[in-house]
Design a protein around this nucleic acid. Structure first.
Lengths: 214, 214, 214, 214
DNA sequence: CATGAATGAGGTTTCATTCAT
DNA sequence: TATGAATGAAACCTCATTCAT
């Protein structure tokens, strides 16, 4: 993996004037709008700029290329989801294992579902160099938050297993992706059931994985 | 999603002559080669034809457009994986639940890992119109095979739950995807551990999901 | 100087069908037409293709980028001039020094003047990586031809000096460039005088440089 | 060539304040820096301003457009070279022809070599509207200086020939250009030899051209 | 005066697809 | 049937220049 792979994805400059902050924000939002309304294939920098009400040139003053724009939007979304789960992990410490897991899993499902459309749209662009890497990084961050939480479980038999936590998180992610990509707009009933089942999946797996460690 | 979305993706003609079959096969293989060596972005019909040793015109005699080509390759891969898991599900009937699940999960992991490179390459193109739909279809097929197997479990407390099986399969798929996309070539040790953990994940979840039904 | 600097300037493919040879030729000619009619700044690949009566895509099938196109045209012109001077050098062997020089210098002036417009146009593009290198190469080639000729002079006092020959050639080139760039279309009288003076310049310098060697 | 071709190239305002002079100077230097480090193709007004430590807007307060900036830099360089040669022509009066020529030619070579990098950089921009014209003007100025000098030669057989002087100067210029563009940084030995040979070239040519006039 | 965000025409290049040979 | 030259719409991106702050 080239060391400078992510270099070209860095935003180009930090706005110093007030008005440009607005511009950057509007470009970011326009990207999602276009992604949702036209699809990933029809997302062009020109269209994004148009939607944002600025010229292409302006877009390129803040993002060195198209990929960096998509990358920034993806990063932003993943960070939001991660932050939310981390917050829950923080507040769910010092409880029994099952309760912790439940809160964490539900937070994950809710975060993804809240902006289901964005989630689906971003699956389309999470491919390609940089995407998986970013997903991995955020995954690690989430794992650490979960591990820290699990370490405070009032009924833990043994410290949590790093690999197992990763498996659990990616399994949840995969199930959610499958659900979201299957058809647009799952019914509330489906969502409720999914949440319930994912909680069960995580709880039973964590219980089994922890027990095994004895 | 329009009803005829998949119509345009069907291969143009069924090869009746031996020569045609060879050509189609070489194009299909070339697609994967190019995908692996150049990436999805640099996969062009011209390059595929070149690699296959035919002209672009010939390629278009067998596939109406680029998407149908990618679709066919993806379909082929998914079918192979599915067929393998189905076969295991068939032969693992009339055993205790845990054993069944173990065989099924291991078959899944092994099928994906056997051509890890292809799996990774195809993740790149599995997004976009047609991809998720195909994944969903093959998922249903797999689910039925698993359900049929589970129904013969010698120690089943209750009939299996449709939604739960789907969750289990997509969770496994997500975990594998995460593993494969994380870094190229996971070590044998990692693979072994992943297999073991995924077996545990599926077993514990199925046990919990089945018990709950009582 | 990067070793692969000239790699990207190589024409992309050799035409195998008869019609494409025509295409390549017409693109090459169109380049000069545009250069003459619009100037170097307004020379765009689109305009060249238009003038050639083909599409841009066709242009790019034969030249990997704009620079390679300009490079090829420049190369072609320089080769023509060089070939002409070489031919004269060949046929002027075994004569007295002054006569040799006269024939050579006159051939040079005539070759440049014959297509004065092209010469001027090409000065505009002979700049940039690749241009000076090419000029240098052709210069070396010319120098060798001149050296070989001088070696057969019936009244040579000593073998010719490599560096001096280079100086002479580049001096002639510089004088011609100055003349051509000064104003468009020098009068026949001016050309006659320039030819005469350049002959004198070369003769006197060669005489002096040869004598010095004793 | 339109009569007002050079009108737009005049610097916009004459710096009257000390601060302005510093700014103009830094912009001028930055232009050469960028030209040397990035090449003519990558020379943009923004980059120049950046390097100069000012904003683009400021740059445009002193130069109406990009061309005028380049023009000014080129003009400045040519004027320096010309002034130096003129000075030598002034001080070398009333000597024998050969001595005069030697001093003049050596001054020319030294002036060019002193900032060889700048010379090379400026070749890149000396093409295009305004460039050749400027070169021609400075050439005339030099020619007059040389003519004036030659008229005082203690051993002159006849008054110097206008056209011949022009030929001599442009020949020297061409030889120097060839030398500088051939490879970066000619060795001191090469420079010494070049100086020597150019002196010889000019001496022998002037001697021949003068003699012929008798 | 200086700043630098914004502009947008226009440049280069790619690539899915067609069709005469 | 196979070929591959030709197409041309459309993508990405640059940069000289302006003008509100």
């Amino acid at each position: 993996m080239p060391a400078d792979a992510l270099l070209a994805l860095e935003p180009r400059k930090t706005p110093v004037q007030a008005r440009s902050a607005v511009t950057v924000q509007s470009i970011s939002e326009a990207t999602i709008q276009v992604l949702l309304s036209q699809g990933a294939e029809r997302l062009t920098t020109t269209r994004v700029a148009e939607r944002a009400g600025v010229s292409v040139g302006t877009l390129y003053q803040y993002y060195p290329n198209k990929r960096s724009l998509l990358f920034a939007v993806l990063e932003n979304h993943l960070n939001k989801v991660a932050a939310r789960v981390e917050a829950v992990c923080e507040s769910a410490r010092h409880k029994p294992l099952a309760g912790m897991i439940q809160e964490m899993a539900e937070a994950f499902v809710d975060a993804k579902m809240e902006r289901a459309d964005i989630s689906v749209a971003l699956y389309r662009i999470s491919t390609g160099l940089g995407g998986p890497l970013l997903v991995k990084q955020v995954g690690q961050r989430l794992r650490r938050a979960v591990e820290a939480m699990l370490g405070t479980a009032t009924d833990a038999k043994s410290p949590p297993d790093k690999f197992a936590v990763e498996i659990m998180l990616s399994a949840m992610g995969g199930a959610m992706r499958s659900l979201l990509e299957a058809g647009s707009n799952p019914s509330p009933a489906t969502v409720r059931k999914a949440r319930e089942q994912l909680v069960l999946l995580c709880q039973s797996y964590m219980a089994a994985a922890t027990a095994k460690r004895v």
